[in-house]
């Protein structure tokens, strides 16, 4: 019998183990009760098994989120590995829900699990998609808002990867600013 080469039967390991979370906006429950872990994975094959199995963001109800975070990091500002960090935030128009939301989210997931930001991938904590009536949002969270080089690498490569028009500016906000903002807008520490 011809022995199968490992390539044929060994799953492809990812650099990190990841956890996918789902947030459903149930007003009768507390915020943390509404946040549920769906599943964890650490191979390419297991990622696809999960991804192919769940709803696309455009099919979720308003107020729902998906969060993909490195295992051990909770998808909230307060987590020790998030609290000193921030996020690249992309806000989408209402029309983009049908044309762009799902493919941007998939591309974001592939960037994370594929470690697509070279050395800067170390700084990535996770990514969140928020489905909202006024416009959906996708963000990539990093762990230290002072690591400008890594943050700029991530922002520039992410913008290129989604081939966003140059005039579409992405802003990076620290979680500290976002959580303590007085007005409706949070100032950007960086932008690309």
């Amino acid at each position: 019998p011809v022995a199968a080469s490992p390539e044929q039967y060994i799953k492809h390991p990812l650099q990190n183990r990841w956890a996918l979370w789902y947030f459903k906006n149930d007003k009768s429950k507390s915020w943390t009760e509404n946040l549920r872990l769906i599943s964890k994975f650490d191979t390419v094959e297991d990622f696809w098994a999960l991804y192919n199995h769940i709803q696309q963001p455009s099919k979720l109800g308003f107020g729902c989120d998906y969060c993909l975070f490195k295992d051990g990091i909770k998808p909230m500002w307060e987590d020790d590995r998030n609290k000193l960090g921030g996020r690249w935030l992309m806000t989408l128009s209402k029309q983009q829900r049908h044309n762009d939301l799902d493919r941007y989210w998939m591309e974001t997931l592939l960037c994370l699990i594929g470690e697509s930001f070279d050395e800067a991938s170390e700084d990535v904590c996770g990514a969140v998609v928020n489905v909202r009536p006024k416009g959906d949002k996708i963000s990539i969270w990093t762990g230290n808002c002072q690591n400008k080089d890594a943050i700029m690498t991530i922002g520039q490569q992410y913008k290129e990867r989604l081939n966003l028009p140059i005039k579409n500016i992405l802003g990076y906000q620290s979680h500290d600013d976002t959580s303590s903002k007085s007005g409706s807008t949070t100032k950007n520490m960086y932008s690309v």
Binding site: L14, Q15, I113
Partner: peptide, 20 residues
Amino acid sequence: EKKRYDREFLLRFQFISVSM
């Protein structure tokens, strides 16, 4: 060394069912 995968490589596995 780091396990990095580009999108083309990852996409090849989306619909390959793992026959374990």
